[in-house]
């Protein structure tokens, strides 16, 4: 059980990283980004392209650091993967969402457009990389046996550290910088933000970049924790949304707690039922929250 809680915290940290981006986007663009899971996949595959093809072609072959199954090349690959995915998210905004936004369509139309973007992204991944799954490294996966029956891989410690460093980084940005505060202001009250001189479109572009980059990092971490495959992000969509709704949609702090709770509950559930029911667990949590406390456990942040 303790072991499941630990693996739940690791999965939960990955969910959190995706969920904070999703909830931030919701606050700014006002629709649920159904392509968020596939942005995770895209990030994971770009990192795979870096570690398996581009860096080796440059003569840089990854050598594992200490007990880890990967080395610096893997870690450096985060940057291009996050950058490219962030730009892809901006491209999707320019090509699809902005045009719809200018026509003032309802949020549901934007969400469905995001679903279409998700399908396109996944199809492109299938075409380029095929349906097989991949591992970032062929290195040996060491396992530490800790008390209370906890098994932990050194890789997972890195997953935890990277995920939380990014989440903390994002929160610091949102709390301390002028641009971060302006983003929160825009999510709070778009009309007042506009009369205060905050440039809405620039902020939306920035939010897509941040959302895409964070999703990419979450995807890579998921790939390190398990493996890289085309449906990896799509299957995360339900837990991502469940985490966001659990924390109160649009509430950045709620997403943090929601992600952790989701991860732990999903993993612990495997003690009682088949792991293939994990998505159902996320679904049940989401339905329960919507029925009992639709504003999420931390209340809504949108009302004034």
């Amino acid at each position: 059980m303790a072991n499941l809680v630990v693996s739940g915290i690791i999965l939960g940290s990955i969910i959190t990283l995706g969920a904070v981006g999703l909830t931030l986007l919701y606050g700014i663009v006002n629709f649920g980004n159904f392509a968020h899971g596939d942005m995770m996949t895209l990030g994971a595959y770009i990192a795979l392209l870096m570690t398996a093809t581009i860096f080796p072609a440059l003569g840089l072959v990854d050598t594992p650091i200490g007990p880890l199954s990967f080395g610096w090349v893997m870690l450096v690959s985060f940057l291009p993967a996050m950058g490219v995915t962030g730009l892809a998210a901006i491209a999707a905004d320019r090509l699809v969402y902005r045009r719809l936004r200018e026509r003032r369509v309802r949020p549901i139309m934007l969400a469905i457009a995001a679903l279409a973007v998700a399908f396109v992204m996944r199809s492109v991944i299938y075409i380029l990389w095929g349906a097989d799954f991949h591992f970032y490294s062929q290195g040996l996966r060491t396992t530490w046996k800790l008390p209370l029956g906890i098994t932990l891989r050194p890789d997972q410690v890195v997953v935890l550290v990277v995920a939380w460093a990014m989440v903390v980084g994002l929160y610091t940005f949102l709390q301390r910088t002028k641009t971060g505060k302006a983003l929160r202001a825009l999510a709070d009250n778009p009309d007042l933000a506009r009369v205060s001189g905050i440039a809405t479109e620039r902020m939306i572009t920035l939010t897509w970049f941040i959302g895409g980059a964070m999703a990419a990092a979450a995807g890579i971490l998921l790939g390190i924790d398990s493996q890289v495959r085309p449906e990896m992000g799509w299957l995360m969509l339900l837990p991502l949304f469940a985490a966001v709704i659990l924390g109160g949609i649009g509430n950045a702090y709620g997403a943090l707690a929601g992600g952790l709770i989701l991860g732990v509950v999903q993993q612990v559930s495997t003690a009682f039922m088949s792991p293939s029911y994990k998505p159902a667990v996320a679904f049940i949590i989401m339905i329960l929250v919507l029925l009992v406390r639709p504003q999420g456990i931390f209340g809504g942040s949108k009302s004034s």
């Binding site: 505060k181 929160r184 202001a185 999510a187 009250n189 007042l192 933000a193 004034s304």
Partner: peptide, 8 residues
């Protein structure tokens, strides 16, 4: 109405 940023 809505003349403040409530969560700020």
């Amino acid at each position: 109405v809505e003349n403040i940023f409530p969560s700020l």
